[in-house]
């Protein structure tokens, strides 16, 4: 293995899943409420069905996958 640099993005979009966000201190939700971030990586809901917005709660796994957005 080379000893070069690895990709280590701050934002990762998980296919059919949440947005992983690394190193953030706070996140503002769609209502304008600002949430303090307490863990090194957080998962932000992208399916808009989470019961605890703005965080992912895994609900996307039990809703049918719609046609890909264009």
């Amino acid at each position: 293995m080379s000893a070069g640099d690895f990709d280590h993005p701050d934002v990762v979009l998980v296919p059919h899943g949440p947005m992983l966000l690394r190193g953030a201190e706070s996140v503002q939700d769609t209502d304008g409420t600002v949430h303090r971030v307490e863990r090194p990586v957080v998962a932000l809901c992208r399916c808009e069905k989470s019961s605890r917005m703005p965080w992912c709660d895994g609900t996307h796994k039990v809703i049918p996958r719609g046609a890909p957005r264009t």
Partner: peptide, 23 residues
């Protein structure tokens, strides 16, 4: 664990298992 593991599952499947399988 609702929120923590919603993050951990991706770290585990992709960043741990996926990269381990590549390496």
């Amino acid at each position: 664990h609702v929120e923590a593991d919603a993050v951990h599952e991706h770290l585990a499947a992709r960043d741990i298992c996926g990269t381990l399988a590549e390496d």
